[in-house]
């Protein structure tokens, strides 16, 4: 019961505060609600779908993330297996490096 009262009190307090603030503030007029374009006007709403071109970033993420994912268990095995595990990791990294080199050629590291 006490918990409910506390919740009810804070809810009422926040609603009262929000109402008081909304009355204090000047009401936004229609020209103020329009986007500011230095006196110009838009043809359409500003809500638009654009592509953030994640594919190159995804390639890079997979190249590095797969590397790290494999390296943690490998670090444990490396202690017992030694040079053999080292060679295996070398092969794995080489294959991944091809992906990174491909990404480089595609301009993954260039921010656009």
């Amino acid at each position: 019961m006490a918990t409910l009262l506390v919740i009810a009190f804070w809810t009422a307090a926040s609603v009262a505060l929000a109402l008081a603030l909304s009355r204090l503030q000047n009401r936004t007029s229609a020209p103020q609600a329009a986007p500011f374009l230095g006196g110009g006007t838009p043809d359409t709403h500003a809500w638009q779908r654009y592509h953030f071109r994640a594919y190159t970033m995804t390639l890079l993420f997979i190249a590095f993330e797969m590397e790290m994912m494999f390296m943690y268990p490998w670090a444990v095995v490396f202690v017992s297996e030694g040079l053999k595990a080292m060679a295996e990791m070398g092969m794995f990294l080489t294959i991944l490096a091809v992906g990174i080199l491909y990404g480089w050629r595609e301009g993954v590291f260039r921010w656009e």
Partner: peptide, 21 residues
């Protein structure tokens, strides 16, 4: 059509100015 890679993306047309900072 997007000028970079031809993807079909939304276009926003507006007149900016004469008093744009």
């Amino acid at each position: 059509e997007d000028v970079r890679d031809g993807l079909e993306l939304d276009r926003y047309t507006a007149r900016v100015g004469p008093f744009a900072p």
